[in-house]
Design a protein around this nucleic acid. Structure first.
Lengths: 100, 100
DNA sequence: TTTGAATACCTTGTATCACAAAGTACCAAA
DNA sequence: TTTGGTACTTTGTGATACAAGGTATTCAAA
């Protein structure tokens, strides 16, 4: 029953292109999903420690350097498992919800 | 970001007919959703304390008396809010997932 | 030159929640 | 009267999301 929707969203965003924390927060916000820094930073570190992400530093002209996260092959594997798990969850809820 | 999928499932099940904890677990299991007693009992108590559920005792021929939970009017209201929130979550994920 | 605003990263403390495990209690059949 | 099945409850632990605060860099304005 452990959900991990947020992890799913992060991997999903990073599967399209690399990004740094603040930009991920913006993208989530644009999708109506509120996440704060205190949630996201530890989560990125966790996913990196699990081998799902790597990162590189990049200078910015607008302030301090940015930590760009990149999804790994293992991250893509896990993402596709999460796709399946999410689809199953959606259809489970649908079953429960329309059961008569 | 706190979702409460499990709360949603419980209200959904109880919106069809009253039930006691063990039968709810069986129904969830039938829908491929594993939930254990130590999760469900506190959750039912929480929802009761929030006024979403009430309960009554009923004797059983098969063992100890059962605590049948019943959804309240407020519970039905919250359930319909959860319906909307769930639909929004599903479409948010879809947006993130298919964004290009 | 220093100050402040903007950007970005990180940490700490707290509350909640799902689970494992153990405990309590009732009943019927062997 | 003991055993097995059913049912409810509690306790302890780990994970996680959040609020709040802290550190550090850059640039522009005072």
């Amino acid at each position: 029953m452990r959900k991990g929707v947020l992890e799913y969203c992060i991997l999903s965003i990073l599967s399209r292109k690399e990004a740094y924390a603040s930009s991920i927060i913006d993208e989530l916000k644009a999708a109506n999903m509120i996440v704060v820094e205190g949630t996201l930073y530890p989560l990125l570190i966790r996913q990196k420690n699990q081998g799902l992400l790597s990162y590189r530093w990049e200078e910015s002209t607008q302030g301090p350097p940015r930590k760009y996260y990149v999804i790994t092959d293992k991250g893509r594997e896990v993402l596709s498992e999460m796709d399946a798990a999410w689809q199953e969850m959606v259809s489970t809820i649908q079953t429960l919800r329309n059961h008569d």
